[in-house]
């Protein structure tokens, strides 16, 4: 059933970790007896948008969470900007400063206003002054089109607005890589577009992005690279047209067909 046990990067010299900003090599992750990631290999080039597709439970979130060490890999290596983050003694907080993450459920801090949500980590982690943090916060909120909602609390914002604040919050740290875990899955259909527009604009700025999503049109339009995962393995990958128009694996065909 699974025809491609390994991605093409394993086999040959095609893999050049040097021009990859994130390099996932033979990543394994188990929860107890459950082997969630069996052998994942993904190269993410600087400035590229990588879209990760796959059925629910295939390990996409787990893979993403390993990149900023919200999950500890059980095996393999992950290089972020050339540094192996699976090595013991790595400074996790430093790593996370450079790797922004946006969650399916936004996870805004409900006790803080939109602006304060964006300011908090700047002040606590980057030790920016209140004024500077506020200025950066307002810039970022402006970029996601929510400067006029700066003083609203999350409860006063729609889901789409909350997600855009969450994106602003991550961007305020000036990350080098952004991870998106199904950023629009929890949204009403009519709110999805605003968030995707923000993602598109972000991609245009040259931000390196890894996006787990089910938004096929977005994946086609915006991504440079598409990865299809199933059962803890990368089943297929390539350019959007390779994967969408000429899928090699039956599983990919099934998955894409199922979606259409």
């Amino acid at each position: 059933m699974i025809r491609h046990k390994h991605s093409q990067y394993d086999a040959g010299p095609a893999a050049h970790p040097s021009d990859s900003i994130v390099s996932i090599q033979h990543l394994k992750k188990s929860f107890g007896d459950l082997e969630v990631l069996r052998d994942v290999n993904i190269e993410v080039k600087k400035g590229h948008v990588t879209v990760v597709l796959g059925p629910s439970g295939s390990g996409k979130s787990t893979m993403l969470r390993c990149i900023n060490l919200l999950e500890e890999p059980s095996g393999g290596h992950i290089l972020v900007e050339g540094k192996d983050i699976t090595e013991p003694g790595i400074n996790v907080n430093k790593l996370r400063e450079h790797v922004g993450m946006v969650f399916q459920n936004f996870n805004l801090f409900p006790h803080l206003t939109a602006k304060k949500n964006v300011m908090l980590a700047q002040v606590k982690v980057l030790k920016r002054s209140k004024e500077e943090a506020e200025q950066v916060a307002m810039e970022q909120l402006e970029k996601v089109g929510l400067a006029n909602r700066a003083d609203y609390t999350p409860a006063q914002l729609s889901g789409g607005q909350q997600q855009r604040v969450a994106i602003a919050r991550a961007l305020a740290m000036h990350p080098h890589v952004m991870l998106f875990d199904e950023p629009t899955s929890a949204l009403d259909p009519e709110l999805v577009r605003d968030v995707l527009d923000v993602l598109r604009k972000l991609a245009d700025t040259g931000m390196t992005m890894i996006v787990v999503t089910h938004e096929m049109q977005f994946a086609r339009d915006v991504s440079n690279h598409v990865v299809f995962m199933e059962n803890g393995l990368v089943v297929e990958e390539g350019t959007p047209s390779e994967v969408f128009d000429h899928p090699k694996s039956q599983r990919t065909k099934d998955f894409l067909g199922h979606l259409d």
């Binding site: 919200l70 400063e97 922004g100 969650f103 801090f109 908090l120 980590a121 991550a170």
Partner: peptide, 13 residues
């Protein structure tokens, strides 16, 4: 919610 801690930690806190 666990997401609160994860969000904070993912920001480097």
């Amino acid at each position: 919610p666990r997401g609160q801690e994860e969000a904070a930690r993912s920001l480097g806190m």
